[in-house]
Design a protein around this nucleic acid. Structure first.
Lengths: 231, 231
DNA sequence: GTATATTATATTGTATACAATATAATTGAA
DNA sequence: TTCAATTATATTGTATACAATATAATATAC
């Protein structure tokens, strides 16, 4: 609904399937991504699978080891720290820009995304909620209108999802709704310092909600893409 | 010398050839990158060329239009502004981190890079100087030790080279030596605010040296890779 | 002569086939 | 039984072949 593409685009489809699978927590960090298996699941050739995997690698969501295959990335606590620090720097700049550039239409759209996220939370679908939360942050960068920030955040937000999947077992991200709402309010008012303060707190909460002492279990491909195995 | 790889890696080689070609200004912005032509030049199959092109696309150095091929990116003045703004935000954070993490060995290595850059300038090889200048900035991020910043800057620095190629006809980047030296000095001392100030000025000079009113000419592939056509 | 339609060519997109490497299994010796 | 070596299998890496699309060239109508 947020991103309806008219004509089908095989490479993008394969990419998106994998991307969504990872961000929806169906594919756990560390899962091996077998090329032929994926090719058969998606009914395309390995060529397109490899394209998708390479792209995901460059977004840091997948690790590819030469001659040994692709794996869903599993950021270490140290890397997680770096990622959240980078997000803090970039998103503080982003909200500042957003305060300047946010139109009424932008604000409305952002509000809709918040509502969608909330409805996912209400239905107990935390995986979808997490994905939509990421989409909200990305949309903020789009509103800010800085291409490099958009590009960088796409990867960083995805990686943050992995981090939350791995380390945030408590699920303390439920407070996101109010935080996003308040943030949007500040952006609409053009209150830069307030918006930055809220963003800093928001990102701080993500970090606080994580316990960097335990690792997650790894699920297989068939489980992750069970909804495709109609045949 | 700075990056000697023992065993040869065909995909990386193809990528690096193209990357260096672009950053050394042998490939001008807007140049069409024909796949078969490149495959023959590098003596590899189109498969590897396409891999390299996709990677360059994700680094924003190459634009790929569906069914119409790959072109060296040619950032618009507006995008150039966004890129330099993003660099400003990120590199200010980078030097701050670098001030904290810079070891004596790091400082020595950075100094060597400055020397290499200067020797290129002395020989009048501005293309190499530009490339080495970029490597210095990237090394600073490596010293800072933040993976996402390293990753983001790799693309941003490359894009900046394109911007300079396109818009900085005056070549006013010659002042870079002193600026890099002074920057390194501040980093060695751990003087964060001083380092940030110098970095901000340095990046400001890049922008000031550009004239966003004229576009460059486009050279062909054979010219760019003439040094390969021994046969 | 210009413009449109149609054909021919060139280029990119995708799938498959083969090569190289790594992983797993098996065999044999201690 | 355990370890090592060797063979067999599976998986990834690369090149090629074919399909689809776009570009260029030619022909035809006006």
């Amino acid at each position: 609904m947020l991103q309806s593409l008219g004509k089908q685009d095989a490479p993008m489809d394969a990419y998106r399937q994998l991307f969504d699978g990872i961000l929806s927590q169906r594919l756990s960090p560390g899962t091996k991504l077998n090329e032929v298996e994926l090719a058969e699941l998606f009914n395309v050739s390995r060529t397109l699978i490899r394209q998708a995997l390479q792209r995901l690698q460059l977004e840091q969501v997948v690790e590819i080891h030469k001659n040994r295959g692709a794996y869903v990335a599993s950021p270490t606590p140290d890397l997680a720290e770096q990622i959240l620090l980078a997000r803090n720097i970039i998103e503080l700049a982003v909200v500042k820009l957003a305060c300047k550039h946010c139109t009424q239409a932008d604000a409305l759209y952002l509000q809709q995304m918040i509502n969608l996220e909330q409805s996912a939370i209400d239905q107990g679908d935390m995986a979808t909620a997490l994905r939509r939360s990421g989409e909200f942050h990305l949309q903020l960068a789009i509103v800010a209108g800085n291409q490099p920030f958009i590009h960088a955040l796409r990867g960083l937000i995805s990686q943050t999802s992995l981090i939350i999947t791995m380390y945030n077992h408590g699920g303390g991200n439920a407070c996101a709704r109010d935080e996003h709402s308040h943030l949007l309010e500040a952006v609409k008012c053009g209150d830069e310092s307030k918006a930055q303060e809220l963003m800093a707190h928001h990102l701080g909460h993500i970090k606080q909600g994580c316990d960097f002492t335990q690792s997650p279990q790894v699920a297989g491909l068939q489980v992750a893409f069970a909804h495709l195995n109609a045949s």
